[in-house]
Design a protein around this nucleic acid. Structure first.
Lengths: 347, 347
DNA sequence: CTGAAAGCGCTTACAG
DNA sequence: CTGAAAGCGCTTACAG
């Protein structure tokens, strides 16, 4: 059979009907054969598979979805894919999704609630089977969508994981507590907190863990030792600058996350001071880069990749009806490196 | 009109027919109204829009795609979304895509050619309008798909951007040349090259730029000063270790990329040496983190976000028939920071 | 300005 | 084991 005969519509991709014609069967049979339906003659099935292969025919997932009412597609909303924490999470989600036959839509919301809603609407338009939202503050906005179309949503490190949504969150309180304890155990007493913007749930929880650890050592939070950045190096540089203007600066610093710690360390160096000799610094995340910093950063490890996998696992469990409400809290792990040391002078 | 009457199928999402029934028109009219077709009565259109809004009805992009033969969907293949360069590129792609009404599928290929082909097949199944591939070595494998379904592909920093595909690439040769010239201008003569795996096109180009710069200064490449990592900190640490065993170590180092430079700097410090006092280091990329390193990294800036935007712009231009073959070469920019300085001793 | 009809490319009871 | 038919949810000539 020559190739010129075999191609019914030169230039146009083959459809199920073309393959049916070439195989001398109905398109129903082609559909069954390609889906490995048990009730199709093995020889026929083989012939059809070969023909499909030869003509590069692949069934349209679009058309299939229309009848099955399942797209095997999920949507992932991120605030900023360039954030290394977010990228790690997305990597974990994608790995599980891909292994389970799901395709993933990715969209940036730029931490803008309006854009976030638009993104979720777009996912809705594409009839995604489920949605994962990372580090957003407005998860509650999706509840209407959720109830209407029954699309399960998993919130990862979100504020207000409402009772309608599933969630995976880091244990901010415990992580922050452990990081602060580490500084206390080293002998520090003048410990500052460099947070994220005031009012965010994760900031509040990390601050609470910080305060609780100080209390456990019989210390109180000093108001002037609490400053706020923006979760990025830029904001931390400014916040650290404020701390350095104090008449009596802290000997240690607990930061909201690693990027804040990175900014703080740069500002400390700019002031002619040294980490950890003058000021010890603790981060939160354990970004891949953190181990390569100078000095390597002591931090609370957040298993971002694993958390992404958990989020997708949760979604799949819900979709297959194997789970009810899921709310997972993941512990952080203290990783001690060179950015922390005992304070220079005993006070 | 009470809400209980308004919801025709409680629990089921509304479809175009439900809205049509509620509005007392045909579903054709609903379709037109929602697409802002000019030939529909403004009052009717308004009534339909309100009804749709009220019932959370959004037309199915799936069903629409089936008839229009356009999905307004693109696929992005990455080797590893956790790579900060890749994440930046994806951010740029997503920004343009989103602004132009395209949704993006993201898939990791883990630098595995087989997985990469599977990913592209999956995009094909979903009938994406176009594909962007980042930093892959196997772009040529897609040519069959390309020709069969006429799906335009843009290769970003790929090896072998075949003549069938569009491409956006950094000018590796020139960037590397400029970085090396910078070291020469500082007075360095003993300059090493820490590359990526041997045989990769970008590695070859960067090495060629390195060599040309040395030649322009009347120098030759010293074989023992050429080592190879893997584009990551881990590989660079090992490669740098080799350089440090030489009886006469280099005074400067040109690295394949910033992550390699970061690994090299850690290894240099581990040997008790200082950057830039003992060894100057130049990277390639200018990752966001690089300005915050200690010392801040001198590097060749690759505008990753912008390159991602260019890739998507190219795809859109092709899809709208506004462009022919596109092959864009982007210049890198030398960014001088603290990791480079004149050599300590005059030789 | 509007509706009836055909059709996009599949899947899946139903009947044989 | 296979085919004819209906239908998934839309868009779009075509006719009015």
């Amino acid at each position: 059979m020559s190739s010129s005969i075999a191609k019914p519509h030169p230039g146009k991709p083959a459809s199920i009907k073309d393959i049916a014609r070439l195989a001398g069967v109905s398109h129903s049979t082609v559909s069954r054969a390609l889906r490995n339906h048990p009730l199709v003659n093995p020889d026929t099935a083989k012939r059809i598979a070969l023909l499909a292969q030869k003509h590069g025919y692949r069934p349209s997932a679009i058309a299939r979805s229309l009848v099955t009412q399942r797209t095997f597609t999920i949507g992932v909303v991120v605030t900023n894919i360039s954030d290394p924490f977010v990228a790690g999470v997305v990597g974990g989600i994608e790995e599980v999704a891909s292994a389970q036959g799901f395709s993933v839509f990715l969209a940036n919301a730029n931490a803008d609630p309006e854009q976030e809603v638009r993104v979720v609407e777009s996912f809705d338009d594409h009839r995604v089977d489920g949605i994962v939202v990372t580090s957003s503050r407005v998860g509650a906005l999706y509840v209407p969508l959720l109830s209407r179309r029954h699309v399960p949503i998993v919130l990862l490190n979100n504020q207000h994981p409402s009772q309608f949504a599933h969630s995976v969150v880091i244990d901010s309180y415990q992580g922050s507590f452990d990081g602060t304890r580490h500084l206390l155990d080293l002998g520090h007493r003048r410990i500052a907190f460099l947070g994220d913007r005031f009012g965010r749930q994760s900031d509040t929880e990390r601050f609470d863990g910080f305060r609780a650890a100080l209390h456990s050592a019989g210390l109180r939070v000093s108001r002037q030792f609490v400053v706020r950045g923006d979760g990025r190096a830029e904001g931390a540089i400014a916040a650290m600058g404020d701390l350095l203007t104090l008449p009596h600066i802290p000997t240690a610093l607990l930061c909201y996350n690693d990027m804040s710690a990175i900014g703080a360390m740069q500002r400390i160096r700019a002031a002619g001071l040294s980490v950890p000799n003058d000021i010890s610094v603790v981060g939160f995340d354990d970004l891949h880069i953190s181990q390569f910093l100078n000095p390597p950063l002591t931090t609370i490890r957040q298993p971002m990749f694993e958390m992404g996998r958990m989020a997708m696992d949760t979604l799949i469990a819900i979709l297959s009806g194997n789970a009810q409400q899921q709310n997972i809290k993941v512990p952080g792990t203290l990783i001690v490196r060179g950015s922390t040391a005992p304070p220079k002078e005993t006070e």
